[in-house]
Design a protein around this nucleic acid. Structure first.
Lengths: 242, 242
DNA sequence: GTAGACGCTTGATATGAGTCAAGACCCCAA
DNA sequence: TTGGGGTCTTGACTCATATCAAGCGTCTAC
């Protein structure tokens, strides 16, 4: 990828210690010199435009990424050429972790809208983790969370339950980041939501209509408001986040 | 759990350095004193009987487990009471890793047939990982593998593709452990296979019949022989293991 | 042996969600 | 302002797989 990566030393770079996402991201538990050590292995990228690629499946793994702003999706492609969105990544979340074992990216990472991220050389991160117990701890925690989340996506639910669960989880993640949990923008197109949840875009459309009719939410293109959170949670069966 | 756990110092315990699973399990990359250090935090359990529980969902997380012999399944239960088998674990594989983040087990672990395992206090494992770069490396690798695998289970496939993929992956894992990759025992009941793959037991039954009719495999209760691996792989679309 | 239980198989039917096809809406560009 | 391309919605129809309901093995216990 020819994307320009600014060094952490460049003036435009907001260091981890100053970043508002510190409480969600890798720096959890770090301060003083430890924080500086981490900052020194983090590089900040210039923004990505809509649908711009960070890396492609099959590329040699070297870095993991943390979302700084906007949203990224990770997409795997099976041998038949069908693609599947494994996740949408919000600010403070990491992606690329699935490549550690295989040493090459198993998925492609793509920007949704205008988004930016931080890149961390994995080799350096692993070394630094030996020195900094808190960093190792947080890295393992974040990977564990990832395991748990992708496992809970596997449960057999109706389309209705899956979509409700998806919205609840998204709301919770926005809330965690200090945004409204009842009103937010659906950055990704319906097609992407459908793909991620293994359903047809038409089904997503019909379900949204039903949710609106049932007074669970209002929606205007990408502007979504959750009207009855309780009912939505009940419907989703607390599938993802309870 | 009242299960007896023998200390690694007890005579019956086969130490990691002598264990044939060392090349798959945590000890990868360790030797000398490092191996001894690991052995000292590993406890070996007495065998579990069929359907016996190792831990229950909701219990406080303290240990991760490595399968020594037999097979274990991990089961999550959603708020509606439906259970879902997140995985079957073969010798050398770890489970309980999804609990690191949440600090309590998200799933229950259950023995299939007579099986045994090793228990590792997670706190001690994390501490030891600071000291031993190779151990940290392997732990992160195994977690990454787990992420990748559960993600690839999420792709939208037909029942036929899912079952074929499941058998291929199982064959590959047996091969890795020095067993035949074409002939093995299906330790788990049809019901469990169906549950894991999100289908009805009847569908599994019908598909097995079709696979036999099409000359892909022969099956006698739990005794399965893959006759045409190539065709099976093609059918599975290399979904899990290529 | 025989009875009971359990798991597996098989067939008939139902249904949720996919597919196909058309139309509506929205946004941008000229 | 108008035209064109994309995304989203809606309706009609199809199909894969679930569900329901027997029936069949096979194993165990007495």
């Amino acid at each position: 990828m020819s994307k320009q990566i600014a060094s952490s030393r460049s003036p435009s770079f907001l260091k981890c210690g100053q970043c508002s996402l510190g409480s969600l991201c890798l720096p959890v538990g770090l301060d003083g010199q430890d924080m500086v050590d981490l900052e020194n292995i983090v590089d900040s990228s210039s923004p990505f435009g809509n649908e711009e690629r960070v890396y492609n499946a099959g590329q040699t793994f070297d870095r993991i990424y943390a979302v700084k702003s906007g949203m990224f999706k990770t997409v795997i492609i099976d041998s038949l050429g069908n693609d599947h969105i494994t996740g949408f990544h919000l600010p403070g979340e990491l992606f690329g972790l699935d490549a550690i074992y295989s040493k090459k990216y198993m998925s492609s990472a793509v920007s949704l809208g205008t988004s930016s991220l931080c890149a961390i050389e994995y080799k350096e991160l692993e070394s630094l983790s030996h020195k900094l117990p808190s960093l190792q701890h947080q890295l393992l925690n974040l990977m564990s969370k990832e395991v748990q989340q992708s496992q809970s996506l596997n449960v057999d639910l109706t389309a209705e339950q899956k979509l409700a669960g998806f919205l609840i989880a998204l709301a919770a993640r926005y809330k965690q980041r200090g945004y409204s949990e009842t009103r937010f923008h659906l950055v990704m197109p319906r097609r992407d939501i459908a793909n991620h949840l293994n359903m047809a875009p038409e089904t997503v459309s019909r379900l949204f209509k039903r949710f609106v009719n049932d007074g669970l939410l209002t929606i205007n293109r990408t502007d979504l408001t959750i009207v009855d959170m309780t009912a939505l949670k009940e419907m989703g069966g607390c599938a993802s986040v309870c």
